[in-house]
Design a protein around this nucleic acid. Structure first.
Length: 106
DNA sequence: GGGCTGACGGTTG
DNA sequence: GCAACCGCCAGCC
């Protein structure tokens, strides 16, 4: 558990319902713009007790992880749809509408 | 304790 | 415009 990891937890926990962000965005806010991989790695190791909305973190393209991360991409998509997150025809989230740029940017 | 892989993304060729 | 490489840090072997 590094300070960088704790920042990721904090940032992901601040993602409002109905909004989504990208791995790179979280990495950028955490202080390492190129540590996008780490965000995914941290997400994979998030304790269930954290109750982090890791399903609100998607690819830069708006697509979801291709693995069985949340019980399958469909599971993650269902969680986002349940939060009224707009989806495109291609099954990707609309980052233009629900893209989260961070906690109250000044 | 060291090395490789991994929920990714940006830059360079 | 597409393909390949590098970087970042945590987790597992």
């Amino acid at each position: 558990m590094s300070d960088f990891t704790k920042r990721i937890y904090h940032l992901v926990g601040q993602i409002p319902s109905g909004k989504v962000t990208t791995y790179g965005q979280v990495a950028f806010l955490a202080g390492s713009p190129r540590a996008s991989r780490i965000v995914g790695c941290v997400m994979a190791g998030v304790p269930e007790g954290m109750h982090l909305p890791c399903h609100r973190v998607v690819y830069r393209d708006g697509s979801l992880c291709q693995n069985d991360a949340f019980g399958g991409p469909e599971g993650q998509r269902a969680l986002l749809k349940a939060e009224n997150v707009p989806f495109l025809e291609n099954g990707h989230v609309d980052l233009k509408q629900c893209g989260w740029s961070g906690p109250a940017p000044k």
